[in-house]
Amino acid sequence: MAPSRDRRPGFSRRAQYSLFLTYILGIAGAVVGGVLLALSTFNPVAFNALRAAVAELTAPPAALLAGAGSQLASVPDAIASHFQVRSENRQLRARLNQARGALLAGRQAQIENARLRRLLVLRDRLPETIAAARIVSTSASSTRRFGLLNAGSFQGVADGQPVTGPEGLIGRVLYVGPDTARVLLITDPESVVPVRRTRDGRPALAAGRGDGLVDVRTIDTADGRFRPGDLFVTSGTGGIFVPGVPVARVLRAGTDSAPARPFARPDSLDVALVHRAFMPPPPAPPAPAPEPSPTPTPEP
């Protein structure tokens, strides 16, 4: 391709000035972009209303396509499962026989647990489901990991509420629009979830890595190694996540931190439940009303 000579304005003053102006505007655009970038780096919530408004427009077509896509994607699954059914059936029967004893013990423990809780008059907060909706899209071209949920403040979703899927914890609501909500997935590099190990209740933090895994990190100084296969569930510390939701399984051994694979796979995200924040921070105290100036009460 020959170099274009069209940008050379010739001797026309008007053409020269207008070309100069486009470059000024271009540089101004870059400067404004830099300022916005600084603003959104130091105050990440600054432009959430704008983003929510745009998400409001992009969510409905994505929701339609997601419905059609999941039905199409289920066809090969259905074919494959048809051929596996017999061998799987045999395996499951064997496993059921093995598990019968454990199930009996578990039932006994559950009943005893309920009795002891009644005895203690423990005040429990039950996880209350606010909305069930689809995750219609994720940030597919960015290094951040966000999801777009097809339910918003009209359905009662609010900032900070935990989002769980059928397999485990998905993330928490970052900001809401009227009909959509942006979800910070647990694999996002900025996400941290307090968890505990199911085996011994050892507390830890599950921090997102950005590559589809989470890092489980120790928070206590006690000696404890992470072993492959360790299961972690939410602990409820911090008051956002409902305790007991499966989060991740450790992949490789580690002492201070170990990579773990989340149970809710972001590439199979489909239906999600939004729960009320486990124990939300108390509302800010109301501003003190101005004292009315004392008026002299007439003596009777």
Partner: peptide, 29 residues
């Protein structure tokens, strides 16, 4: 035009999940 990438980048930031202003700056550059 030379000023187009700033506006196009602003729109891209709004839908992509990048911090606002990142594509606006980088696309212009």
């Amino acid at each position: 035009r030379v000023w187009a990438p700033a506006l196009l980048g602003l729109f891209d930031d709004l839908v992509s999940g990048q911090p606002l202003g990142s594509a606006m700056l980088l696309w212009t550059l």
